[in-house]
Design a protein around this nucleic acid. Structure first.
Lengths: 345, 345
DNA sequence: TTGAAAGCGTTACCAC
DNA sequence: GTGGTAACGCTTTCAA
């Protein structure tokens, strides 16, 4: 295996100085055309490629490189968060380096380390579901590079974050179902030891409590929906289980739109009319939710704005001295067809 | 604004040598505990952060950094391509730096330059629709870092690429409609001066030609569908136009699934039955296409495999001497409900 | 038009 | 235990 060509190699072979080679390659003035031609020619032959590390070191320019870690990159919400981050990064001439944890905390840690090794000037992370916050994220804070956590929160974390108020949103969703006359509201949720699934379930329970409706444990089905390709199926199966109950629900609050799609698929196969026999609210406002039938009532998650704010926070944190930036977005309910009985309209 | 702390700063303040400071910070043996404590303490005070550029330079380890440029990052196909790229990159300990051109060739060029400045060891690019190939991409080839072009191709480009055979796929789609008894097949396409839109239109025309059906120019409506949020609307409007014709079509080949969704929306609003009154085939196999009604017949685009292969090509190209890697994926038609008349089933 | 040398921040070797 | 020095690959004065 041959070593990588450097300026000296070219200089030696041509009997000129390193300086001259550098000049030729960088298209500087003050160089003999013939010399230049020879250098360029040899550089091509030797496949010379500049060592950017050395260049940056010499120029003392740390290109701001921000590491972004997301659980699933081709999930619309996360992809949109990334889009938001990039839109701001582009304005600030920052470069974004991405990693996909695939909800695997080992992988998350590995990526984090790679990023640190590469010398990122900040980290924006939507933690994996089972992320070991203490072990993966806290140590970075100690290195004093800005960290912004998105989407999923941990107890006792005192740093920068951009979240959504899933509790309130879920509460709103269930309240909406109650307001529309549904009484037996089930929840197809996510087994999530951390914030999201838990918060949405909490909001669901709180709304029922407030309406003085007892919680029916049979009405709560929790799934592992990490794999977005399976989420629809999970929703389908959970609905099947609910409808095997002696007293099935008359409405479902689904933890994501994908899960809600599964509910709709089941309903269509079994001639259950949504919204007349069954009210349904999803969560995310996936593009699809407006084009399936019935059009799905859901919670709007503005990933783009979250991403933009996350980058802003990173940016502010970079130039501030330990100040902490935090924001929890309130989410809107988008009422469509799946939750309003036609007879009531 | 204070300069970043370096080893020398700490050494000077403590009256020790740089070497000693380095040793303390790197937890090496052979160092007085007290000295070490002091150094660590001061390092923390001064917020010392190692300069990874210098470290890498010293260690002679170039972290492979691959630049990926995509037109739209939160488009499912591109996000999945990115996922494919990252899955392979992760195996090779490569880092991925992303940019979103937003179909803007100016932006594309800027990102490209930023990437080159940052010293990426390769570029994987899905060019913007209006990308100035000569100006943006060719110059990079001259710098002899591997470039892999995805998804959209240019005449006379002789480098590495991973494409899909859009011509064949479109031909297949239209042939399928013909086979199912549709005769008056329209095409809602994309104004695309480059490969994709053009190729799909070519395939459409070729299939009709082969079936000895004259091309009806009124049946071809081309839209600018760069903005994915508007694509559905464009499909809707185009369909409206088609149905204003004295002799409307009995089938539509849509250039993307989003456009096809627009067709379905129009059909539902106007009581046109798909597939009975109107056959429909989309393109992309967006997740949604399997869950709308009627379920959409479409062309499957395997972005994940394309991304993986693109990275493999980059990798091979990195260690080969000018060898060129090219692949054009043949695409499968997924037959669902929208293109098969019930009476014929 | 060209070259020598300093220096970017770090680590590793060798000497003390 | 500690410090001097060379080296990583490059650019940029300054001098010739």
């Amino acid at each position: 295996m041959s070593k990588r060509t450097k300026l000296k190699d070219i200089a030696d072979r041509l009997g000129v100085s390193i300086t001259t080679v550098s000049r030729a390659l960088n298209n500087k003035a003050d160089i003999n055309d013939e010399t230049k031609r020879e250098i360029l020619e040899l550089a091509r032959q030797l496949e010379y490629r500049p060592n950017s590390l050395a260049i940056s070191l010499r120029r003392n320019n740390t290109v701001p490189l921000v590491g972004v870690i997301l659980p699933i990159i081709n999930h619309y919400f996360f992809a949109t968060v990334l889009k938001g981050i990039m839109s701001k990064a582009h304005l600030h001439n920052s470069l974004i380096i991405v990693g996909e944890s695939l909800q695997d905390e080992k992988k998350e840690k590995k990526i984090l380390n790679q990023f640190m090794d590469q010398g990122v000037s900040g980290i924006i992370i939507a933690p994996a579901r089972n992320s070991n916050f203490e072990e993966n994220i806290i140590p970075i804070l100690h290195k004093r590079i800005p960290v912004v956590v998105i989407d999923r929160m941990y107890d006792n974390y005192k740093g920068n974050y951009v979240l959504t108020n899933d509790y309130n949103a879920a509460h709103k969703a269930v309240q909406h179902l109650l307001d529309n006359g549904y009484k037996k509201i089930a929840h197809i949720g996510s087994v999530d030891d951390k914030s999201i699934g838990t918060e949405r379930k909490r909001g669901y329970i709180a709304a029922l409590h407030q309406a003085k409706i007892d919680i029916n444990e049979d009405y709560i089905i929790l799934n592992d929906i990490d794999n977005p390709d399976l989420a629809i199926e999970k929703g389908f199966n959970a609905t099947a289980k609910l409808f095997e109950l002696p007293n099935p629900p008359d409405a479902i609050f689904a933890v994501t739109d994908d899960v809600a799609i599964g509910v709709i698929e089941y309903a269509k196969e079994n001639n259950i009319s949504i919204p007349d026999d069954l009210g349904l609210v999803g969560f995310s406002n996936a593009k699809m939710s407006n084009y399936i039938r019935p059009r799905l009532t859901t919670i709007e998650q503005n990933g783009f704005a979250m991403g933009q704010l996350a980058f802003d926070f990173f940016n502010k944190a970079s130039s501030s001295n330990g100040e902490v930036f935090q924001k929890s977005f309130e989410l809107n309910l988008i009422v469509r067809e799946s939750s309003v009985q036609k007879s009531e309209v």
